[in-house]
Design a protein around this nucleic acid. Structure first.
Lengths: 353, 353
DNA sequence: TACTCTATAGAAAACGATTACTATCTGCCG
DNA sequence: CGGCAGATAGTAATCGTTTTCTATAGAGTA
């Protein structure tokens, strides 16, 4: 408190040693909570000196020596997609428990970015990465794994190489949605989606078809609406707009569906918007179901019936799996699949009621 | 490509030197793009050896030596508040341009967390932090700044110490909202908010009162609805719910307002929900205006008229200011104030039309 | 007594880079 | 021809830690 005018350089372990009249080795042992036995007196002297100099360890030095960085890399396509904040929150919640921090990078759906970030993290000696990959080719990842990098991937396209994986059963979710719609008496159910360029969308489409046949409903190409253009911008408004356009297309068709199942919530919201714009009421005239259960789907008007994809939980799990695997020398991989669940709100009408 | 079965240890600069038959100094100079002159032949040999060993620098070593970590810390209350993803995106967009990565931490509105994270970042030799602080006391920050840490703070409570600052003119925004409502012929305008425990809310309330008197409208305590309880959970649904409750309260009052101005979009959405629940139409019966312009407000039904707080731009700016200040030795501070803008959508009715 | 342990402490070697010094060899200038 | 500058390369110190050796007592043991 007194000598406030200390030099701008921070005190090192050496300074502490000097002031305490003790070797650096001992100081290090005290300050890094080693199990090495230290006499009461010495410990006290070290602690006092450290306090006096307001010593704070330089983690770079420590990391370099132990070659272990206490943070984990997180690479996602784009934090502004409402799924990811929850995911990140889940990751961090778990990470902090174990004293890890997270290095967050948005790949912006650019393969080069993704790769660059992975490389960078590796150079920073990060030992574990949670990756929502959009790349199709993972040769470089494989290399890094061989060098000891641990990876937890999810959903997307990580198929060509073996790593820990948290996945989500999109297909089952879609089937679940179809089951529900069928149970509500819907027979003509449209499917609305952006282009099927992502695995998740393809799987949901699969589930749509599976769900139809499971419920003895005919599949008709007339009922599937898949936008042709995909803007790689991910600010959400794109899918919302394309939902609105699809609403127009749906209304222009010969025979209206009684329900439309959208590939995700934002699209569903756009569809509802488009329908209401034409004075079609939801769910009274047409029912709409979404997928994801983003936070806002509950606040929408009408509240959206949807399939829950547990983002937060996924993040927690991913982080746990990663931290666990960091401890192991071996390279066997965990593969977990999270299950969807139905969230009933007010956007689907019961035709049988 | 051939000797795939290389040891798991990564090649160091030393290995490269050995293989190339060249000193480490020279290798370092080549590989770190130094300006030191190197002969064509030597350079080639080094590059080849590096390639052969698939050398990749250990950034910890470099950082330690140069005592400069190439990343910046970002501490925010909670990424699930829809304002922050945009902010983070803005920060990263700018950061990547300059080769910085971001270390993201959520303080969860806990002072202890905030402090712990700052300390941790400092220990990691991070030289710049972007901080949305919730702490009231910044003594420790002041200390760190004295030791060379650069900080960019925004909005919140950072008043007791001097640092770079990006702020937003909440009051002007609120006045702007009132101007607009008045121009639309509204005379009885309610104010709805969660408790005024944050600076931003207080300032908006100020603006509400200022705006009233500016437009020659009387202030009436009957028209202000401020929830008493504040849950420190920030998952949004809380403010949404409290909006719904306030809608009930508003409807129970003797003389209805023609418009209600909410302290933020989520609250506004809740209010609309609550009103519609009672078959009050928005904007036909009552107009509602929000504040923030979160992405979702455009997708809502009806699309929300609101005041734009430029989250992305704020992030970019904050990052720029920070990186700029990292270069300087001096400690003079920048203070920027971003201006609000009006976003007209469909939740306010023109009473004069 | 001689020998093994354990507690305690310090010296010095890492960890993987950068860089301040040196040192050599050119070529050029006066 | 002596000297000086620039190009080029190597030696070794350094960044702040951790940790492996050594080393010295004192204590317990046979």
């Amino acid at each position: 408190m007194k000598d406030q005018r200390r030099t701008t350089k921070r005190a090192t372990i050496r300074d502490v040693a000097l002031m305490a009249g003790i070797s650096v080795a001992t100081v290090s042992r005290v300050l890094s909570h080693s199990t090495y036995p230290i006499s009461k007196g010495t410990r006290k002297k070290v602690l006092e000196a450290a306090q006096e100099l307001s010593y704070s360890p330089n983690l770079l030095g420590r990391m370099l020596k132990k070659s272990d960085s206490r943070d984990i890399g997180v690479i996602i396509p784009n934090i502004s997609n409402p799924f990811y904040p929850q995911l990140v929150l889940g990751i961090e919640t778990e990470a902090r428990k174990h004293g890890f921090s997270i290095l967050l990078c948005n790949s912006f759906r650019d393969v080069a970015n993704e790769r660059k970030y992975v490389e960078l993290m590796h150079q920073k000696q990060i030992r574990g990465i949670i990756l929502s990959s959009i790349s199709e080719e993972h040769g470089f990842l494989k290399d890094l794994c061989a060098r000891g990098l641990k990876v937890v991937g999810f959903d997307q396209n990580i198929e060509d190489f073996h790593c820990n994986r948290i996945s989500f059963d999109f297909t089952a979710g879609a089937v679940m949605a179809m089951d529900y719609l069928a149970a509500m008496g819907h027979q003509r159910i449209a499917f609305a989606s952006s282009p099927l360029v992502r695995r998740s969308r393809r799987e949901i489409f699969e589930g749509y078809k599976l769900g139809l046949s499971k419920n003895n409903l005919p599949f008709s190409a007339d009922l599937v609406y898949i936008m042709e253009i995909e803007k790689e911008v991910e600010n959400g408004s794109f899918e919302f707009d394309s939902g609105r356009n699809m609403a127009e297309m749906i209304l222009a068709s010969d025979e209206l569906p009684t329900a439309v199942f959208a590939v995700n919530d934002v699209t569903a919201l756009g569809i509802i918007h488009g329908l209401m714009n034409r004075n079609v009421r939801v769910p009274d005239d047409i029912s709409v179901m979404g997928f994801d259960n983003i936070e806002f789907s509950a606040m929408f008007n009408p509240p959206l019936t949807t399939i829950n994809q547990p983002a937060f939980e996924t993040g927690r799990l991913a982080c746990n799996v990663l931290i666990e695997s960091l401890g192991e020398e071996k390279n066997d991989h965990v593969s977990l699949k999270l299950e969807p669940s139905l969230v009933v709100r007010d956007s689907v009408r019961n035709l049988l009621g």
